[in-house]
Design a protein around this nucleic acid. Structure first.
Lengths: 197, 197, 197, 197
DNA sequence: ACTTAAACGAGACGGTACGTCCCGTCTTTGC
DNA sequence: GCAAAGACGGGACGTACCGTCTCGTTTAAGT
C-alpha cells in the first residue's frame, strides 16, 4: 500500500549535488555562460562527467538546477501596506537579478524557453513562487480593506516585475537607479489598484 | 579624394541577402533558435557558407540582421492624448513580439548581450528607436499641457514596455490578453505621469 | 607456519563462478567479443559486478577463465603410428577451434598478448599442454623406430598446428575442408620427419 | 554514360591522408595498440578529429588503412625453382611480421575479424595478394615441369604461411629462428607437392 | 542464539575515449 | 573574379564502459 521506495544500491552522494552546483555557479561567474563546459564543471567539482549526466539530462538542466532551482524561497513580505509589500517584492527581485552576471540571465532564459521540459519546470518553480507571493500580498490588502476586490494576479505580476526585468535585461540600465525604479513601480501599481476600487 | 568605393570585380548579389534572411527566418520558425545552424541556412538558401560569412562576421550577426534589423521603423503615434499614444506604442510592440517564436526572442537577446558589438547595434537600433518614440510622445504631451514637465524617458520606457515583454517572454502568457494588458499599462502610466504634475 | 587460510566470514558461492562463465560464453556467442561488457555479464548472470571483480582482476581474465582455462585436458593420442598421432592432434585442435566464434579467438589472443600475466598463463596452460602432447607423440615415434632422433618440438608444433590456425583464424576458410587439411598437414609433417632420418 | 564523378568543392588534402597514416603508425610503435587514441592521432598529425572521421568510419578502419592497406605490393618471386620461390615468400612474410610490434598484429587481427566490413577488406587486400603470389609461383612451377598439376592454392597458402604466423603470433617464438623455420617450411611444402606428382 | 566477517545485488563513482556536431576559415573548380 | 561546394582545425557534446566504492542484506563459522 505504502510506497516508501526504499532504494537499492549505492545511494547518490549528496555532496556531489552541491559540488556540481557550486562549480557551475563559480564557472558561470568566472567565464560566463557561453564559455561554460560540462567538462570544466566536472573537473572543477572533482567528479566525473557521468555523475553529472546521471542527475541531469543536459547541460542546460544542470545550469537550471544550479541557479533557478536552488534559489531559496522568500516568504511574502508583510509590511502592513500594499505599497510597502509591492516595493519589497520589487526590491528582492531587483537584488537577485543584480547579483547574477548579466549574460547568465539571458543564457538561462534562452535555454529555458528553448526546451519544453525546462520551460515547464521554470513555470513551476520561479513563476509559481512569484505568483504565490503576489497573491498573498494582494489577499492581505483585501483583508485590510485597502482593496475592494482581488485583481488578476498575473496582470499585477507583469505590471510589477516587468519594468524591473526590462531595465536589467533589455535596457541594461544603471543598477544604481534600481531602488528608485522599484519605488516608482510599486507606488504606481499600488495607486492604480487602490484607485480602481 | 572621394570615397564612393567604386567596386571592382563582380558586385554582390542582392538576391543573396534576401535569400539568407528568408532562409534564416524560415528555419528559426521550423526548428527554433537553438537548432539553427549556418550550414542549414546556406543549404536552404541554395548558397555557400562563404557568402554568409562574407556579409556577417558571426552566426549571431546573421540572425540579428534577419530579425531585428529588418524591422521597419514606426513613426511615433499621434492620437491627440498621452494615454492614446502610450497605448498605441504598447500595441505595436505587443504585435511585433507576438509574431516571433518566443525562443527566438530569448536566443536573440542572449546573443545580443553576449556580444559587445551586437549589444551596441541593438541599443542603436531598437532601443534608440523606442526611446525616440517615447520621447516624442512625451514632448507632445508637454506641449499639449497634459504634463507639466517631461519625465525621465528611460523610466517611462521601462514602465511602459516592461510588462509587455514580461508577459510574452517570461510568463509566456495568453496572447489574447495582450490588448487588455496594453490598455491597462498605458492607462496606468498615463495616470501616474499626469498625477505627478 | 601452515597457510591453509582458514576463511572467516561468508564463503564464496561456487554457483556464481559457473554463472559468470556461462553468461560470458553465452554473450560471446550472442554479441561477439568486442561488444562484451562486464555489466552485461553481471546482469545476465544475475549477480553484481563486484562478485566478478572479486574473482578476476580484469575483464580479460574473466573471459580467459571462461574459455581457455575451462578447456579439458586431452591425453596424447596413441594410434600406433606417428602419422596417425599427428592427424589426431590436428583433428582435436581443429574441432576445438571450430566451436568458438572466430572473433572470440582473435579477441582472446589479442588480450592474452597485451597482458603480461595472461600471456604467461596462456603459455603455461594451452601452449605447454600442446607442447607436451607433441613431445610425447614424438618420443613414442622414436621408441618405435619411426624416427631416428627426436626433432625440435617447437618447430614441429608450428609446422603442425600453424596451418590449422591459419585456416581458421586468418583465411576464415571452409570448416568442411578441415579434415582434409588435417590429414594433409599430418602426412606432410610425418613424411618430412621420417625422410630426414 | 561516363561516371568520372568530377567532384565539386574543396578536394581532400592528400597530405592529411599521409599525416594520419604516419601518426597512427608512430603512435602504434610508441604506445602500443591498446593505448592508441583517435585524439592522439589527430593531435600528432596536427589535424582535427573530423578530418579523420571524414575518411574512416571508425578508429579500426583508420588503423587498418594505416597498416594493412598501405603495405606495398610485393611481386611474386621468381628464383627459378619452386622451393626457392616458396622460401622467398616465407621470408618476406616473416620479415613483415617481425617488424610490427607484436600487440599491434593481434589487435589488428582482432579488429578485422570483429567487423564484417573490415574482414571483407582484409580478404580483398592482404589475403588476395598472398593468394595471387602463391598462385603465380605454382603456375610457373607447372610450366617448368616441376609440378604435374597445380594444387589447391588455398591449401598451399595455409601450409606455407600458417607455421610462420603461428610461430610469431601464438608461440611468440624467437625471431632469430625465423629464417630456419622459413627454409624448413618451404622445403617441406615443396617436397610434398613434388612428391605427389 | 549471537556475534563476526566476508560475500552478495544494486548501482553510484572517477576517469577515459568514443563518434558526432557545429563554428568560422580555407581551398578548389566552374560560371 | 566572385560563387557553390565542401574540406579543414578546433572544441564541446552526450554516451559507453572500465574497475572501484559504497550501501543494506544474507550467509556461514565460531562463540
Amino acid at each position: 500500500m505504502s510506497e516508501p521506495k526504499q532504494p537499492v544500491g549505492r545511494p547518490r552522494d549528496s555532496q556531489i549535488d552541491h559540488a556540481i552546483a557550486s562549480a557551475t555557479r563559480a564557472l558561470l561567474v568566472e567565464r560566463g555562460y557561453a564559455k561554460l563546459t560540462v567538462d570544466a564543471v566536472a573537473s572543477r567539482a572533482g567528479i566525473g562527467k557521468a555523475a553529472i549526466y546521471r542527475r541531469f539530462a543536459t547541460k542546460q538542466e544542470m545550469i537550471f538546477a544550479a541557479t533557478v532551482h536552488d534559489m531559496e524561497e522568500q516568504p511574502p513580505p508583510d509590511s502592513g501596506s500594499l505599497r510597502g509589500d509591492l516595493a519589497a517584492i520589487c526590491d528582492i527581485i531587483a537584488e537577485q537579478l543584480s547579483t547574477a552576471p548579466p549574460d547568465v540571465l539571458h543564457g538561462l532564459l534562452a535555454d529555458i524557453h528553448g526546451d519544453q521540459a525546462l520551460g515547464a519546470r521554470f513555470s513551476g518553480s520561479f513563476i509559481e513562487r512569484e505568483r504565490f507571493v503576489i497573491d498573498t500580498v494582494l489577499s492581505r490588502a483585501v483583508e485590510r480593506g485597502e482593496l475592494a476586490a482581488k485583481p488578476d494576479t498575473a496582470i499585477v505580476h507583469a505590471l510589477l516585475l516587468g519594468p524591473i526585468f526590462y531595465w536589467i535585461l533589455i535596457l541594461i540600465g544603471d543598477h544604481g537607479a534600481l531602488p528608485d525604479l522599484s519605488r516608482t513601480v510599486a507606488g504606481m501599481v499600488a495607486d492604480t489598484l487602490t484607485a480602481s476600487v
